[in-house]
C-alpha cells in the first residue's frame, strides 16, 4: 500500500513538471523552426537613436542577414552610430547559437498579448550569453520581447512588433534598449562654447544612461540570396 502511495506522490509531483518542460522545449523548437525559414534577407528601414549624449538625425538604414549568423546594418547615406548589441536583432541567430537549458518562466503579457516566458541558459560556460528571457506569443509563434544579459555587451532588451512578415517571424518594428556609459571628454580638448556653464552642468547630471534605438522596417526581400561581400568591410 505504501509503495502505491509513494508512486502516486512521485507521479503527481514530477510528471507535470516534465510535461511542462517538454511543452516549453517544443515551443522553442517551433519558434526556432519558424525563424529558420529565413536563410537570408535584405531590408530597408529607418533608425531613430535616442541616447542622452548622442544628438543624431533619424537615419535610413539597410539591414542584411545571412545564415548562420551574419548581420550588417548599413546607413543608406551619411553616418550612423549603430549600437553594437543591435546585431542581436536576428533572434534565429541567438536560438541557433548553441545548446541551452530551457526553463519555464510562467505566463505574462506584452502589450496586452498573453505570452509564455521562457528563460534560456547556455550550456557552454564560455558563451558570451549569460541569460536570455524570451516572451513568446504562443498563438503566432513569434517572440514579442527579449531580455538578454551578456558578458561583453552588457544587458539589453528587444521589443518586436510584427505586421506583413509575421509568417516569417520578421518584425516591422524593433525597439532596442541598452545601457550606455558616461560620455565625458576633457574640455581642454573640445573647447566647448558655453556662455552659461552652470545651467549646462545641471542638465547633463540629470540625464539617464539608458539608450534606445528604434528601427522601423518598411520592406524585406527574403531568401533571394546575398553575397558574402555585403558583410565585409
Amino acid at each position: 500500500m505504501k509503495k502505491i502511495i509513494r508512486l502516486l506522490v512521485a507521479v503527481i509531483l514530477f510528471c507535470p513538471g516534465d510535461l511542462r518542460a517538454q511543452e516549453i522545449n517544443q515551443l522553442v523548437q517551433q519558434v526556432r523552426a519558424k525563424l529558420n525559414q529565413v536563410n537570408d534577407y535584405e531590408a530597408s528601414g529607418r533608425m531613430k537613436t535616442n541616447v542622452a549624449f548622442l544628438k543624431v538625425p533619424i537615419s535610413g538604414v539597410r539591414i542584411y542577414f545571412k545564415k548562420p549568423g551574419q548581420l550588417r546594418i548599413k546607413n543608406e547615406k551619411g553616418i550612423s552610430f549603430v549600437p553594437k548589441g543591435a546585431v542581436s536583432i536576428n533572434l534565429g541567430t541567438m536560438l541557433n547559437s548553441g545548446k541551452f537549458t530551457i526553463l519555464d518562466g510562467g505566463n505574462d503579457q506584452v502589450g496586452g498579448v498573453p505570452v509564455k516566458v521562457v528563460k534560456l541558459l547556455p550550456e557552454d560556460e564560455e558563451s558570451d550569453l549569460v541569460l536570455s528571457t524570451l516572451y513568446i506569443d504562443v498563438s503566432a509563434l513569434v517572440i514579442l520581447k527579449t531580455r538578454t544579459t551578456t558578458r561583453e555587451s552588457g544587458s539589453y532588451e528587444l521589443e518586436l512588433s510584427y505586421g506583413k512578415y509575421k509568417a516569417y517571424a520578421l518584425p516591422d518594428k524593433i525597439i532596442f534598449s541598452f545601457n550606455t556609459r558616461d560620455y565625458k571628454m576633457p574640455k581642454g580638448m573640445t573647447f566647448d562654447f558655453e556662455v552659461d556653464s552652470e545651467g549646462k552642468k545641471e542638465e547633463v547630471k540629470g540625464k539617464t544612461k539608458k539608450g534606445r534605438a528604434e528601427i522601423t522596417i518598411t520592406n524585406y526581400t527574403i531568401n533571394k540570396g546575398l553575397p558574402d561581400s555585403v558583410f565585409s568591410n
Binding site: 544628438k55 551619411g78 560620455y183 565625458k184 571628454m185
Partner: peptide
Amino acid sequence: ANDVVVAKSTELHQIEK
C-alpha cells in the same frame, strides 16, 4: 563631404551633410 560629427565634452552632435 559627409555628415559632420562635432564632439562637445558631454555630447556628440551629428549634422547632416
